[in-house]
Simulated scan of single mutants.
Amino acid sequence: MTNIYFNRWFSTVYHYINMIRDNPDGRSFTFYGTHPDPGHLSLQACDHAEPEPELYGAEYVDYALDFCRRNRIDVFIPRLHMLEIAKEVGRFDEIGTKVMVCRDIELLERLMEKDRFYESLAGTGVVPLPAYEVAETAEQFAAAYEKLRSGGHRVCFKPTNAEGGMGFRIIDNERSEQDKLKALYGWVSATIPFEEAYRTLAAAERFPRLMVMELLPDEEVSIDCLADADGRLIAAIPRRKSSGRIYLLENRPELLEIASRVAERCRISFAYNIQVKYNEGIPKLLEINPRMSGGLYITCLSGVNMPYLAVKAILGEAIERPEPQFGVKASYIELPVLMK
């Protein structure tokens, strides 16, 4: 029996646990989970769960290490405090716990700070980058906005270390007062006028770094990737967001080539995700997440059980290169789950 531990994850890890549990080899696993919310959906798929304390830095690493020791964890798949855990991965090695994390600390630090990662890829030809500037004062923000706008770009911004869509805003100066009134009765919008953003940012002498970027208005694609422990690419599956909740799994040569070049340069191990967005037919990098993506359960409809294969990879087992089924059109709906 192999013990697997997921710390504070998204609710979609519920699917990944069940994908590993329902593996085609009929292997048995025991799943452990922690989360500050004892009713969190991710814990409902676990065999053993406990509330996770609000700890940071070295204290959190000590907690996770103790949890792994107490429960004889064989494979630890972290999301929360991934960088801090990676820096202390040797301590987990000593107790026999394999941690599914990028061990290249310098690379991991760059991946966590988008501006640093963009700098490392500039001029390499690995993947096209959007035009961008970094700002941490209102004056820098204004200068970045004007530079990008003068280059013919619509402009957006996002914190350099944000996850997902957190903090993402599109600068839109065209909204009339009537439009603003209508917006109060509709969905919350990600748009904001420049003057409003500038006034808010000017309230602080300095603020956490923002990426002020070219807006990429066209289709968004996530490329879910699987690699072995040495970062050699095993599979890459592009998942394009279509209308509403519809996704398409597509065999796009330009995206598979991006995945191959990223793997060759970065050597990220196990499961990770490359996000790109198109502008005038060119796929440009948004970010790379060195972990399983939130939408991986849809990608696995290709017939490739990436969570289970990632576990096999970290256990050092041979993996036959899978043949994903492309041309899959999929969506998702809410389903009731009986709570433990």
Results as ranks from 00 to 15, higher is better:
R321C: 04
R103G: 05
V188D: 13
D93V: 11
E320T: 13
L184Y: 14
S260E: 15
A49F: 13
I170P: 00
R110E: 15
T160N: 02
G33E: 07
A271Y: 00
R69V: 00
Q325R: 15
K87H: 06
Y272K: 03
A235W: 08
N305E: 04
A64T: 14
Y63D: 01
D172G: 02
L249F: 03
S189H: 14
Y132A: 08
C46Y: 08
E264N: 04
E52Y: 10
L184M: 14
A330P: 04
A162I: 15
E219P: 00
E214K: 11
A204R: 14
F6M: 10
Y278H: 04
A271F: 10
E250W: 08
Y32L: 06
G165C: 01
Y145W: 15
R72D: 04
I95Q: 03
Y278E: 06
A229F: 05
A162F: 13
D62E: 15
K329Q: 10
W187Q: 12
V127Q: 02
D172E: 12
E220S: 11
K98I: 12
H35K: 13
I274M: 13
Y308W: 14
T97S: 06
T160E: 01
G26T: 00
G294Q: 05
N7C: 09
W187P: 06
V276E: 07
L215F: 15
A197K: 06
R175K: 14
N173L: 00
L65H: 00
L210D: 05
R149L: 05
L65V: 05
K340H: 14
C156Q: 10
K180L: 07
L80Y: 06
L108V: 12
P36L: 12
R69C: 00
N23H: 04
D47A: 01
E250N: 04
R209G: 08
R267I: 08
N7F: 02
A202L: 12
A235M: 00
Y278F: 13
R245V: 03
L301V: 02
V188S: 07
F157C: 07
N251W: 12
F194R: 03
D104Y: 08
P51R: 11
Q178V: 06
M292E: 10
G39P: 00
A313F: 13
I105E: 08
D115Y: 11
E320G: 01
D172Y: 11
N161I: 03
V221P: 02
E254R: 11
A236S: 09
L41C: 10
E84D: 15
M306C: 03
L83K: 08
N3T: 05
D66T: 06
R70I: 02
V101F: 08
A131V: 00
R169F: 11
D37G: 05
F270K: 04
F207A: 02
G327S: 07
L107E: 01
I105S: 00
K312Q: 14
L41S: 00
A190F: 04
I268W: 14
L286S: 10
I170F: 00
D115G: 02
E52R: 14
P130R: 02
S243F: 07
G327P: 08
A64I: 10
Q178I: 12
E106K: 15
R291C: 08
G167S: 05
S260V: 09
V311C: 09
L301Q: 13
M112W: 03
R79D: 03
Q140G: 04
I282A: 06
R239W: 05
R169G: 01
N173C: 02
F326R: 06
I192H: 01
R232V: 01
T200P: 05
I258Y: 03
L226P: 00
